[in-house]
Amino acid sequence: MTTIQDELQNLPPEKLVVEGVSKWFRTRRANVHALDNVSLNVKEGEFVCLVGASGCGKSTLLNIIAGLETPDRGQVLADGKLVTGPGRERMMMFQESALFPWLDVMGNLMFGLKLKPKLTRKERRRVAMFYLQLVGLEKFMDASIHELSGGMKQRVALARALAPNPRVLLMDEPFAALDALTREQLYGDIQEIWEKRRKTILFVTHNVREAACLGDRVVLFSPHPGQIKEEFSIDLPRPRDINSVELAKFSTSITRALKYHLRKSAGEVDE
């Protein structure tokens, strides 16, 4: 006989718990209500995509989960512990690539690795090379950041975020600046990394198809104030092809819901 307590303990722990998070930005011009009572649970190893119109607080939520910003209300737990600041196990990939211009490509990858204890110099270099190869930029290891195209910068940023092997990846529109071909290749890569390493990924995107292709779950945001409106479970087998017909069905219904919530928040539709 197992009691309900035992059963609860044996449940896989929630990797990330966002509880009633609200955030306001007070500027001289206005008081922006960026997030309103947002709650979200992400299981260990889950791939969750956040979609929503521009300005509905997706980046803000990611920053709060990363520990770079504090919520005005509510809290975030990672592995059951309150998030009070950034931590290496939650790596963030920013909307702008945020690569360091004073370091070359290799130096950028090594930055996070050097901060990881118990790694020899050789191991660090090997890990860095591995991820550079993964994003197909090993030829550019000595290049300066300004010599890279926008898409290449995003790939270096991806490699830099992956290199320290974090458990949680917070990705803020990482592929928005890429061409379709590179993007498709990276969809494959990211799914592979995710499956092999059992990472937990929170992925922000504007692209509904991209969300349906990558996510176990797609979470819909609506703006003014930023709220979670709806969730879709995508139970398609992996690896998924972004051009498949089944995927198109999901993305159509998500798009429809997105449009509906946008019109509603603009006051065009009654409850």
Binding site: L68, P86, M92, F111, L115
Partner: peptide, 21 residues
Amino acid sequence: RAARTMGSRGLHTWLRVILPG
């Protein structure tokens, strides 16, 4: 911010990020 997510703190951030930046 990027440095902090990678585990950089305090003096390290100042010497390795702010100063070179």
